[in-house]
């Protein structure tokens, strides 16, 4: 689907610690999400699309508030995709004046952590090839551009399918690198959260 998060240096009228992140809490959050997405993204989604996501995977949707105002949101799903348990980021929006402050990164990181804990093997999403902000954001999180999708959007623009592969048990990879020691493999601060797929 889409995301509007491009990192723009904006003069902040707020401190990052002023931002409050809340997990999707029920029907009262729905109009806030719809409002943000309708305002910022081009595709018209019916209310069924929103409900499809937030009712089935409420734990994967988050909202960001600043002084009581909803200024960003992320909507996701997860499930089996051709034998792989996969997370999918459907919508990610941060209002323009609040961009470039790491709010989108924080929102999406929260969702990805839940996906990882839930046993997802990978996370995917689509982004317009011209959306440099989103591409940079996801690149920093370890996503690669796995595919280019020709004329993906109705406006004729191509999309990238971005993919994040989570580390898996040693047996998955054909070589025995892990025994040789790979310092970066398995981040310490994530180890507590990390439950490889059984």
């Amino acid at each position: 689907m889409e995301s509007k998060v491009e990192e723009e240096a904006s003069k902040s009228m707020f401190e990052c610690c002023d931002i409050e992140y809340i997990s999707y809490g029920g029907e009262h959050h729905l109009p806030l999400i719809m409002d943000l997405v309708d305002k910022e993204l081009s595709e018209p989604y019916s209310i069924f699309t929103y409900r499809y996501f937030v009712y089935l995977w409420p734990q994967l949707s988050f909202l960001a508030f600043h002084q009581g105002k909803c200024i960003g949101t992320v909507v996701c799903k997860m499930g089996d995709h051709r034998g792989t348990f996969r997370g999918y980021i459907a919508m990610l929006v941060v209002l323009k004046p609040y961009r470039g402050k790491g709010i989108a990164t924080e929102l999406v990181t929260r969702s990805i952590k839940v996906m990882m804990e839930s046993g997802c093997e990978e996370v995917t999403l689509e982004a317009e090839v011209t959306n440099k902000g989103a591409l940079a954001l996801y690149g920093r999180l370890g996503f690669i551009r796995a595919k280019r999708l020709f004329h993906y959007y109705l406006n004729g623009v191509d999309a990238f399918r971005l993919k994040l592969l989570f580390p898996r048990p040693e047996s998955y990879f054909p070589d025995s690198l892990m025994t040789e020691g790979e310092p970066n493999y398995g981040h310490e601060h994530l180890e507590d959260d990390y439950h490889p797929l059984s």
Partner: peptide, 9 residues
């Protein structure tokens, strides 16, 4: 990255 390493890439 935060979630994976060069190996996954």
């Amino acid at each position: 990255g935060l979630f994976n390493s060069e190996h996954e890439i």
